[in-house]
């Protein structure tokens, strides 16, 4: 279990997160929603150790991450940032870097690493893209390539900061299905999302953030029943139950 216990964090003197406590389990997809500036991305960065904590602690399976080196943390948690560079490399070269935390100096990727990357690409159905340069891919394909990188990293937890940004709706749905599958396969997946119907449709649990605090967590139906969404976002959601499925949509 990945636990954030009473963490306060921010950038320089500006504190963003205020006493945030939340846990993420393996085999579940948790989405974090909240207005711009509510601290969603900051929370993921603090969990990953990218920004220092002012107070509180992050624990993995009960052990404080302060006891881990950066490399050890990267062997347990993968993180994909919101703004991704498009480096001049192929998909397989990118994914090989997912093995980086598992190697020691001088880091040379082995046949075993290459076979792990090959499996990751296969799992995401993008083996055919292996030798394509990242710059030649569409946004959706590129996002999948980055997810393959985090799969190759072979961690228990994957933190995704706005993975659906800049994707058209069909690619958003494809990506969320992929992410959901990863959770079903045993990974603990945390995704920051802006699209509420998408978050409610795919998540096992939703965390709602506002002004640097987590104001609610729970299964989508539970969050839906509360008047929270209107209070936080100023919009309303409709829940439509159909024969064999359900969906959420904005009430216009």
């Amino acid at each position: 279990m990945l636990e954030l216990k009473n963490i306060c964090a921010g950038y320089g003197k500006r504190q963003i997160l205020k006493d945030v406590s939340i846990f993420f389990d393996k085999s579940e997809l948790v989405t974090v929603i909240g207005p711009n500036g509510s601290g969603k991305s900051t929370m993921l960065k603090a969990a990953m150790g990218i920004i220092p904590l002012i107070s509180g602690e992050v624990c993995i399976d009960g052990e404080n991450t302060n006891n881990f080196s950066r490399q050890q943390t990267a062997q347990k948690i993968a993180y994909l940032s919101q703004g991704k560079n498009v480096p001049d490399m192929t998909v397989s070269q990118l994914c090989l870097h997912g093995r980086f935390p598992h190697l020691s100096y001088p880091r040379r990727y082995t046949e075993k690493d290459k076979s792990i990357v090959s499996s990751a690409l296969k799992q995401l159905g993008i083996s055919a893209l292996a030798n394509r340069p990242l710059s030649s891919l569409s946004g959706g394909m590129r996002q999948n390539a980055y997810i393959a990188l985090s799969l190759a990293q072979d961690t228990d937890y994957i933190l995704l900061d706005e993975p659906t940004s800049y994707l058209d709706i069909s690619h958003q749905l494809e990506l969320m299905k992929t992410v959901k599958t990863l959770a079903k396969q045993g990974k603990g997946v945390v995704a920051v999302l802006h699209d509420l119907p998408l978050a409610f449709a795919f998540s096992d649990r939703i965390a709602v953030m506002k002004d640097g605090e987590i104001i609610a967590t729970g299964p989508p139906k539970e969050i839906y029943r509360q008047p929270l969404i209107r209070e936080v976002f100023g919009v309303e959601l409709d829940y439509l139950e159909q024969e064999k499925s359900y969906r959420y949509k904005y009430k216009l």
């Binding site: 960065k45 990953m48 150790g49 990218i50 080196s69 950066r70 490399q71 050890q72 943390t73 990267a74 062997q75 948690i77 993968a78 993180y79 994909l80 940032s81 703004g83 991704k84 560079n85 480096p87 990118l94 870097h97 997912g98 980086f100 935390p101 990293q153």
Partner: peptide, 10 residues
């Protein structure tokens, strides 16, 4: 890969 992604790789 960028500052955050590089840091997240340890």
């Amino acid at each position: 890969l960028g500052e955050d992604n590089a840091r997240s790789l340890g």
